[in-house]
Design a binder for these strands. Structure first.
Lengths: 222, 222
DNA sequence: CCAGCATTCCGTATATCTACTGAATCTTCT
DNA sequence: AGAAGATTCAGTAGATATACGGAATGCTGG
C-alpha cells in the first residue's frame, strides 16, 4: 500500500547538534535508512521536507522558532508527507494527543533505543501503521480512562503577540496589576487576556495556564 | 595549578542515549579527551564519579531520578570533583544561577557547537577558569541588573513527599478543594502546604509555583 | 525520652482571580 | 468600505487564594 524509497529516506529535526549527530550515527549504521537532510527548527523542517519529500520525518517536538508539532501540522496540511515520528522528552501524554491531532504516525521517547527507533520507522514506513511504544501506550490508556484527565484542546494554539506577552509575565509570577503597570494597561484588560488565554487553553486556573505554557514551550524560559 | 590527566578524562551524563552518542562522537574525534564513563541519571553519575574521579563532568541538567544540579551539588559536597560543566536546554538563567551555587564551573546550551564544547572543557580543566558562552553571559548580566528579576533562592530544595504530591496536583490545574478531596484532607491543610511550598520556593503565587516546578523538573510532566 | 520535622487542622481578614457580560477602538485583510 | 480579529476597558458577583497567627498529632533519629 505504502510506497517508499530504498533505502528509506529520512529527514531528522532536532535543535541539538549532538542529538542529531547521535541519531544520524545510529541511522547511518543501518543501510536500510538514509538521512537526506537535517533541520534544527520547524521552519527549516518545512522547507527541507518540501525539497526532499522523504519517506519519513523524525521530529523533535521542542524546537525553537517553530516547534515540531506545528511544523508537522503544516506539512501534513500541505498534503506532502503523511508519515512522521515525533520525539519527545518526557513522554508527556498531552503532547502525544496533540501529535496525533497533528497527523503524526509514531511517537518515541527521546531516550529510546536504537532497536525501538528502527522498529518505529519500519512500522510507519513499511507497514503503514502507527507506532507507539508499549510502555507509554498503556500509560496513556490509563490516563485516558481516568476521568480526571483532561487533554488540551487543539494541537497548538496560535496565541497573539499580546497573549504571549501576558503568558510570559504570568509565568514569571506577576499578578494582573503588576502586568498592567508593566504594560501600561488597565488591570481589567490583563484579566480579559488571561480569561481568554485560559479559555483557549481549556484550563481552569493560572496553574493550568503556566503548566500549559511550559508543556508547550510557549514561553522562552526567561 | 590544576592537575589533570592526559588525555583529559571525562564523564558525560545525559538521559538520552542519542545525545550521549553525539557527545561521545564529538569528544572521541579529539584525542585530547577521553570519555571514561557515561551516566543516564544523577545517581549513576555520582557512583561513576566516585569510581573514576575524572577531570571533568559534562552533565545534563534535566535527568530523571536525580537531576544534574542535585548530583553535582552532592559530588562537590563530597569534595571529590570540583570541575563540571552543565548542559541545559533553554539557557534558563535561573538554572544558571542554581548551577553556580551547586559548584559548576561551566555552562553550555545544549545546542552548542563542537568548538564551544572544546573551549569550555579547556577553560575549566586546563586553565581552571569558569566558562560561560558570551551570548548567555551578557543576557544574564542584563537580567541581573533588572530589578524585576528575582532568582530562586537555593539550588535545589528537598521537598517532602507530601509537598511533591501537592505540587504535582497544583500543576495539573486542581484547586485546593479538589486536591483535598483527592487526598482525603481538609482544604485548609492543602492551603498550608501551598503556602509553605511557595515560601520555600520564594514565589508569590501559584503561577510562580508551577513555573518553579517546571523549571526545576520537580514534577513528572504527567 | 526529647527535639525536630512532617503533617494535619483552623479563624479572620484581605487580595486576587474568575465568571458572565457587554462594548469601544484599532488593525488587517479582502 | 466592510468583515474579522486583536486589543482595550469595565461592572458585578462569587470563588479562591494568600497573609498572619496558632496549634495538635505522629514519627524519627539521637
Amino acid at each position: 500500500m505504502s510506497s517508499f524509497h530504498n533505502p528509506i529516506t529520512i529527514i531528522i529535526a532536532d535543535d541539538h547538534p549532538f542529538y542529531r549527530e547521535g541519531l544520524l550515527n545510529v541511522l547511518h549504521s543501518n543501510s536500510k535508512y538514509r538521512v537526506v537532510a537535517e533541520a534544527s527548527n520547524g521552519k527549516e523542517l518545512i522547507d527541507l521536507a518540501l525539497e526532499h519529500e522523504p519517506d519519513i520525518l523524525i521530529v523533535d517536538i521542542g524546537m525553537p522558532i517553530m516547534n515540531g508539532i506545528v511544523a508537522i501540522k503544516k506539512i501534513t496540511a500541505l498534503g506532502l508527507i503523511s508519515r512522521s515520528i515525533a520525539l519527545s522528552m518526557h513522554s508527556e501524554d498531552t503532547v502525544m494527543l496533540q501529535m496525533l491531532n497533528a497527523g503524526c504516525m509514531g511517537y518515541l521517547d527521546k531516550n529510546t533505543s536504537k532497536e525501538e527507533l528502527f522498529e518505529a520507522i519500519d512500522s510507519v514506513v513499511i507497514h503503514d501503521r502507527v507506532y507507539f511504544p508499549a510502555s507509554t501506550n498503556s500509560h496513556m490508556m490509563e490516563l485516558l480512562s481516568n476521568s480526571d484527565y483532561r487533554p488540551y484542546p487543539e494541537a497548538v494554539i496560535d496565541f497573539t503577540d499580546r497573549e504571549k506577552e501576558v503568558i510570559g509575565l504570568v509565568c514569571r509570577d506577576f499578578n494582573s496589576k503588576e502586568i498592567a503597570d508593566k504594560l501600561n494597561l488597565g488591570h481589567r484588560t490583563i484579566e480579559s487576556h488571561r480569561a481568554r488565554i485560559m479559555e483557549r487553553m481549556n484550563v481552569k486556573s493560572v496553574a493550568g495556564l503556566v503548566a500549559y505554557a511550559y508543556s508547550n514551550k510557549i514561553i522562552g524560559f526567561y
